[in-house]
Design a protein around this nucleic acid. Structure first.
Lengths: 337, 337
DNA sequence: CTGAAAGCGCTTACAG
DNA sequence: CTGAAAGCGCTTACAG
């Protein structure tokens, strides 16, 4: 036991020397990529333990070339959807000893293209993109570099990646159907900006829901908001002035639903007795306001899980066509509808 | 222009050859660590551009040994405090081309000790720990490995790292003082579990605030909750049964304040006319409930910024004693107090 | 079942 | 102002 400079970090050579075997053998007991006799395996392991040996990440990567890391690009970490997604992703990839590199586009720095470049330079194994700002031309270079890319959210024009998202169309249909089951006939909607996802899909789903349940549709009962409480309040005021006043409103997100409820209360209308209101998202406040908000929960964490499974599958070499998976949502019925 | 196998990733040797200089020189124009003539610098840069050369992260790290990454360990990404902190951190470190590696302890996997081990293996430059579960004995190895460690939250016994946190003591004092300025005499508090931070500091701050404003203190007006809405509601019921009913309640977080308000309303008490309620955190729901909750905003993003500055300072070689910085909070007065 | 040796793509004394 | 060469700590054909 003459060696043992304990201040120095142990390398694979130290382990090999102390165990009386070659670096090759140590490397193989580490990777398991080639059979090693039980005796020497045990010896090597005990030496590793004793020396506190840890593989040098850079050296391993330089030869082997996988960094065991997944990058996650997120539109706005401040929106609770993304942290939940991040958690789901970490859960599945962490299981396989991958680590997650985070980029919050909303932070403003670094610029997204800089981060994506970093991603290839660092030989990241996979990238999960949950950010509307990213154009597919920015993703091409990653794919060419052999990085597995999966995209979260509604499909965008021309994007060629595996995708996960909530089923926005079905979400709206389910909400409308719930309203119908409660006996409502005149059902309005407060939409998000209607040309882009997920606003467009939820509007289409609303219309389908009406048709499917044989309710009448009317352009007057469709009012556009911009996802904010204030816009929901304003849209609701417009709706409540209609000659044929709707008795139920499907709001394309919870924030607008909160605004809608405030307007209803301000007008002296009881919710849900006079007007029922249902939202989408299940934000934290949904259960805290009165009346408590009925809504459709977007399964953010599950989306993260699936995104993780998709990247890992590609990393493991799965080929075949791009996959698109829709993660099931669920209705959370509280008081407002 | 005979070379140019465009399918292959360009290395520093390719650049050197194409520019007619040595790898040494290319390396130096990249790092700027030694003067290079303007002419050759320009030539090298143009070749880099042309070949689309990107430094191999592993090779650079193996020689140079900095990974340009900061790890962030967070207790529960699902709590909005942490995403905001993460954003602040990214903003400052991103500016300097560092990238952030995220670990959400609440995800359950990987185990925290595994992640911390990864952190030294990957030669991370700094670690920001915002997680109560991490004991200082787990941090020692990182510091020994030369990693800059900063800790977020109230100081813990024996921890020897730079620290950032909100000033929990002062937060409570400020809230109580606000209540006093509104003319309240009998001021109660609903605390978190009182033995651990931040519950203990907020309780102490409440008592100081009372003393400083010459209000009477009473053990009966201190009721312990567990940070949840339900516990706040229950504590409030107890408080409202007191013979000398308090006219104002300082709740150690917003969730308990929401519960307190619900109880008050259920008892037919008007808020803030009959009882004023103030919380801490400024959660999203605070502005959405009625009456809107007055509270003390915890400056999560600023805490992240400061944490980033502290790590970077240490990475840049700052020595000297451990620093502890308290980030200023602010009162957000809405309707409930 | 095991080793010697080349090689991954950089950085950095050392030398001029 | 610039280069040749050693070395960082691994992995992996190749050979036995």
């Amino acid at each position: 036991v003459a060696e043992g400079n304990e201040d120095q970090i142990a390398t694979i050579s130290d382990v090999a020397a102390a165990a009386g075997v070659s670096k090759t053998t140590v490397s193989h007991v580490l990777s398991g990529r080639r059979p090693v006799s039980e005796a020497t395996r045990a010896k090597v392991h005990s030496v590793i333990e004793e020396l506190g040996f840890k593989q040098n990440f850079f050296a391993a990567g330089l030869s082997g070339s996988s960094s065991k890391t997944i990058a996650l690009v997120v539109q706005d970490l401040t929106n609770p959807f993304y942290p939940a997604l991040a958690r789901g992703l970490q859960q599945v990839v962490g299981e396989r000893d991958y680590v997650v590199l985070l980029a919050d586009v909303g932070a403003g720095t670094p610029p997204i293209e800089v981060f994506l470049a970093q991603t290839v330079q660092r030989r990241v194994d996979g990238v999960v993109v949950a950010a509307v700002d990213v154009r597919d031309t920015q993703l091409k270079p990653l794919q060419r570099a052999g990085i597995a890319v999966v995209t979260v959210g509604s499909p965008r024009h021309g994007t060629k990646t595996d995708q996960v998202s909530a089923d926005d169309h079905q979400i709206a249909r389910d909400a409308v159907t719930h309203l119908c089951e409660q006996g409502h006939e005149l059902i309005a909607t407060i939409t998000g900006p209607a040309l882009v996802a997920p606003g467009s899909s939820r509007l289409a789903g609303y219309r389908d829901g009406l048709k499917q349940n044989k309710r009448s549709a009317s352009r007057a009962r469709v009012v556009e908001g911009d996802w904010t409480v204030a816009s929901g309040a304003k849209a609701m005021a417009k709706l409540m002035r209609l000659p044929l006043r709707p008795t139920a409103v499907f709001c394309a997100n919870d924030l607008m639903a909160v605004g809608a409820i405030e307007t209803a209360v301000a007008l002296g209308l009881a919710v849900p007795e006079d007007v029922a209101v249902i939202g989408v998202d299940d934000i934290d406040a949904a259960g805290l306001i009165r009346p408590a908000l009925s809504t459709v929960r977007i399964p953010a964490q599950e989306i993260g899980l699936v995104a993780g499974e998709l990247v890992l599958a590609r990393i493991d070499g799965a080929d075949g066509p791009q996959r698109q998976v829709l993660v099931p949502h669920n209705l959370v019925i509280r008081e407002s509808a």
